[in-house]
Amino acid sequence: MTGICQDRVVVVTGAGRGLGREHALALAAEGARVVVNDLGDAARSVAEEIVAGGGAAVADLGDVSDWAYAESLVERAVAVFGTLDALVNNAGVNRDRMLVSMSEDEWDVVLKVDLKGHAAPLRHAVAYWRERSKQGRPVAARIVNTSSGAGLLGSVGQGNYGAAKAGIAALTVIAAAETARYGVTVNAIAPSARTPMTEAVAAFADRMRAPESGFDAMHPGNVSPLVVWLASADSGDVTGRVFEAEGGTIGVADGWRYGPRAVRDRRWRPAEIGPAVRGLLAAAPAPAPVHGT
């Protein structure tokens, strides 16, 4: 029996632990050949685990926010496995702190790793697929990005992380529009799971849920089936979307869209703005609350 990603070559970033590790293992279980990226030896352990289980994988250690390394990561996949079919952007860090107390380094490192660490591999993977498309070769390529509820709705104490994850959501829809002509789809997930980055929040969620069925709703492996399908050839009709995933739940996140409008055939007077804005807000749906409020 073959899996839905049989023989597809997939790069997974940040795959040494947490969600990325689960994605890499799940992809390999469905027949994918996996390039396991991370900074430390954990990436080697994941690749070895896949190979020991009869799969195909190599580890590639490096910082995906480095533009040149991101290019070499794509090149490594092609050199080892002959092609590249999908990129799962998962690498990320957090440095949680209230904005008024946040340091410049805490801001910079999160934006660098989380947002640039998505943009750099995406850029080089798309360049590879564009060249294949120009050569008239078939392309059924997939990019799966990792956003967050903190980016979609905001989260108190995570201004840096939320800004990066909101940027990833915007990057996803823009890249989907730009790359469709090359046979590339680009989607994102906003997962909720227990990982080394979210241990405190997940522990609280575990206590609140107290599941009767014994189902571990916060296990990171629950998110991976969605990632595997989005990386498969079968998902070619889905692009530019952000999916929420938690436990046994999958949802579609409905982002910014045009709402009620007030129109004049002339320039607005400042004194008219207040009543107009309040009327628009009364007609618009109430925003979802920011996490932590």
Rank of each mutant, 00 (worst) to 15 (best):
residue 223 V to D: 03
residue 119 A to M: 14
residue 135 Q to M: 15
residue 177 A to P: 00
residue 141 A to W: 04
residue 192 S to A: 14
residue 178 E to D: 15
residue 146 T to M: 01
residue 173 V to K: 10
residue 128 Y to D: 11
residue 118 H to R: 00
residue 130 R to Q: 15
residue 151 G to S: 02
residue 111 L to R: 08
residue 176 A to D: 06
residue 130 R to V: 10
residue 153 L to T: 00
residue 117 G to A: 13
residue 164 A to N: 02
residue 136 G to T: 12
residue 116 K to M: 13
residue 156 V to F: 02
residue 178 E to Y: 05
residue 108 D to Q: 13
residue 154 G to V: 02
residue 137 R to T: 14
residue 109 V to N: 09
residue 105 D to H: 14
residue 178 E to I: 09
residue 129 W to T: 11
residue 163 A to I: 03
residue 220 P to C: 04
residue 183 G to C: 12
residue 194 R to K: 12
residue 192 S to G: 14
residue 139 V to T: 12
residue 121 P to F: 14
residue 107 W to D: 10
residue 219 H to R: 12
residue 107 W to T: 09
residue 190 A to I: 08
residue 167 G to W: 07
residue 190 A to F: 11
residue 144 V to S: 01
residue 152 L to V: 08
residue 120 A to M: 15
residue 142 R to A: 13
residue 106 E to Y: 04
residue 141 A to T: 06
residue 216 D to T: 08
residue 135 Q to K: 14
residue 178 E to K: 09
residue 159 G to W: 00
residue 222 N to Q: 12
residue 165 K to C: 04
residue 187 N to K: 11
residue 191 P to T: 11
residue 133 S to P: 03
residue 193 A to I: 09
residue 129 W to Q: 11
residue 152 L to D: 01
residue 104 E to N: 07
residue 189 I to G: 03
residue 160 N to E: 02
residue 168 I to N: 04
residue 127 A to F: 08
residue 194 R to L: 11
residue 195 T to I: 04
residue 110 V to Q: 09
residue 190 A to G: 13
residue 157 G to I: 05
residue 189 I to N: 04
residue 199 E to Y: 03
residue 200 A to L: 13
residue 188 A to Y: 12
residue 105 D to G: 05
residue 158 Q to D: 01
residue 189 I to V: 15
residue 158 Q to G: 00
residue 165 K to D: 04
residue 202 A to Y: 07
residue 129 W to S: 09
residue 145 N to I: 02
residue 182 Y to V: 07
residue 125 A to Y: 11
residue 114 D to H: 07
residue 169 A to I: 03
residue 126 V to Y: 09
residue 208 M to K: 11
residue 182 Y to F: 15
residue 150 A to I: 00
residue 121 P to T: 13
residue 221 G to V: 10
residue 209 R to E: 14
residue 168 I to R: 06
residue 103 S to M: 10
residue 214 G to H: 08
residue 226 L to R: 02
residue 219 H to S: 08
residue 154 G to A: 04
residue 182 Y to N: 02
residue 151 G to M: 03
residue 111 L to E: 09
residue 111 L to A: 12
residue 156 V to K: 06
residue 216 D to L: 10
residue 208 M to N: 01
residue 166 A to F: 07
residue 195 T to W: 07
residue 152 L to K: 01
residue 114 D to N: 15
